[in-house]
Amino acid sequence: MRQAYKVWSGIAAGVFCLVAATDLSGRGVTPPAGTVASSSSLPASSSTAPAAPAVAGSSAGGGSTSARVVEVIDGDTFRLASGDEVRVLGIDSCEAATPGGRRATDAARARLLTAPVTLAAQPGVDRDRYGRMLRYVSAGGGDFASAMVAMDHTSIYTGGRNDASPTVQATLRRIDTNGRTCGTTTTAPTTTRRTATPSPDADRPRSALPAAPRTPTREPAAARSGGGYYANCSAARAAGAAPLLRGQAGYRAALDRDSDGVACE
């Protein structure tokens, strides 16, 4: 009898332990210190991969727009299909009429005319005093200004206030290791402005305009009348009037080549 009681008591205790263990596992009890939780109980990671480096234009903040370039004026200026003229922030290419300027213009055409470009504004900066849009430019998947200053026809802008952000300027300065080599302007500008507005890029070298031809001084009508006017020194000598002294009838500056006051010596 006593032995049967012990057997049934052992069976009851085993059933109780089994039920208790099942209940505890359903409640998600925290494992005691010193134990390792299974990987299925760890929370999912919320970390993300670092973003790709931003180009110079996007680092300045503000939105960006896509646009199509229809004309490249020089290495740092171009015109959009909308009619707006854009000046690239932060850089200064050689004048278009110089050898370096022609290289810069060709490089800009190769990058800007093949596909739409992305324009980004510097906060607080919109247009210069000539009405040109001041923008950072991305073309062909890269920063246009960075690509241009790496070559010898373009450098960082130093001709006045540079409206690019300090961060962009520092980046361009690191890339611009060779400055710019423009060469000599080969032809004088063939166009003139309608107003007296100064050049949009006054810092660039400009070729001097050719000197206006001197117009010979016309003799007074009184000096040409009668026998007091000689077409040339041969006529004066034939008339027996040579040499002619300043103040005499027939003397004129055109006949006095050395301007010593004596003509047809």
Rank of each mutant, 00 (worst) to 15 (best):
residue 134 L to F: 10
residue 160 G to I: 07
residue 118 T to Q: 08
residue 173 R to P: 08
residue 119 L to F: 07
residue 95 E to P: 08
residue 129 R to M: 09
residue 121 A to M: 08
residue 163 D to R: 15
residue 97 A to H: 02
residue 188 A to R: 11
residue 168 V to E: 03
residue 107 A to Q: 11
residue 123 P to K: 11
residue 143 D to G: 07
residue 132 R to Y: 10
residue 146 S to Y: 12
residue 134 L to V: 06
residue 193 R to E: 08
residue 192 T to L: 03
residue 126 D to G: 06
residue 133 M to N: 07
residue 140 G to L: 05
residue 119 L to R: 05
residue 160 G to Y: 13
residue 161 R to Q: 14
residue 101 G to W: 01
residue 114 T to I: 06
residue 145 A to H: 03
residue 190 T to H: 13
residue 89 L to V: 01
residue 187 T to M: 11
residue 98 T to R: 12
residue 125 V to I: 15
residue 171 T to P: 00
residue 174 R to K: 15
residue 91 I to S: 10
residue 109 R to M: 11
residue 169 Q to H: 07
residue 176 D to Y: 05
residue 93 S to M: 00
residue 103 R to D: 12
residue 140 G to H: 05
residue 89 L to T: 01
residue 109 R to E: 08
residue 144 F to P: 01
residue 128 D to Y: 13
residue 127 R to S: 10
residue 109 R to G: 13
residue 118 T to A: 12
residue 184 T to W: 05
residue 152 D to E: 09
residue 112 L to G: 01
residue 116 P to I: 03
residue 101 G to F: 01
residue 166 P to S: 09
residue 132 R to A: 02
residue 180 R to C: 02
residue 90 G to S: 06
residue 154 T to R: 09
residue 106 D to Q: 12
residue 142 G to I: 03
residue 169 Q to N: 05
residue 131 G to V: 06
residue 180 R to T: 01
residue 121 A to R: 14
residue 128 D to G: 06
residue 127 R to E: 05
residue 94 C to R: 08
residue 187 T to G: 11
residue 95 E to M: 01
residue 167 T to C: 03
residue 135 R to C: 05
residue 116 P to M: 03
residue 116 P to R: 13
residue 142 G to V: 04
residue 139 A to M: 09
residue 128 D to N: 15
residue 163 D to P: 13
residue 121 A to P: 02
residue 91 I to V: 06
residue 188 A to W: 09
residue 160 G to W: 14
residue 143 D to Q: 04
residue 183 G to P: 07
residue 163 D to N: 12
